[in-house]
Amino acid sequence: MITVTDLSRHHGPRSVLSGLSTAFPAGTLSAIIGPNGAGKSTLLMLMARLAAPSGGRITLGGQDITAIPPGDFARQVATLRQSPAIDLRLTVEDLVAFGRFPYSRSRPDAADRRAIDEAIGFLSLGPLRRALIDELSGGQRQMAFLAMTIAQTTPCLLLDEPLNNLDIHHAAGIMRALRALCEDQGRTVITVIHDINFAANSADHILALKHGRLHSSGSVDQVVTEANLQDLYGLDFRILPRPNGRICDYFTPKGEAG
């Protein structure tokens, strides 16, 4: 659905992303992984049009994204960066309602109301509906911002480290919600993620970046191998198969393993 061709981005002489070509399959959960400074967030920002590439192009359903008017783009791609520390006395419901801005710029109609209710219900935020955003915990806040992004009812969602700073309860909740978005609603979700275990167990497709270049990409089975992850992160990895997935162990250096 989203295709990237020979994409690059420079900050002055420093190259953040160079010569990246890849495609994200539609209707699946794709994880972008890699060490710090690999260009993961940059790639996401370029796809979200939050920054302009220095070279190359990005297409959405075959159309160059720079040719899509901002309003139309917001009905196809919704982006959530790390939830901003806004200082507004908004309720969760007010925030989620902003997700309908691309459809009805000021007054929500019945369809908008329905989408807002669905997004709130989808993330079980019903009890917090009238809570003020700045009084929520970090995890609840992240959930509220995700609900806004979901209420945008776009075929494609771009998320930048949605699990950052969350406890495992909220992190698991968000990953379950993202899976359900793909499986039940057929949406395409592309997320930058740091936790390799969440990527290995929840994603369908993984893109690994290193030093601003494509390191490896493909299905979880293709990317999550001991040799590949060792090369990507420069750490010793042991991959422990489990009945419903696998666990990547990078806590025990080789030799110490019993």
């Binding site: 979200a48 917001a74 982006t79 901003p84 801005f101």
Partner: peptide, 8 residues
């Protein structure tokens, strides 16, 4: 800025 752009 980023949220505003994302909302079109």
């Amino acid at each position: 800025r980023e949220q505003a752009i994302s909302l079109g």
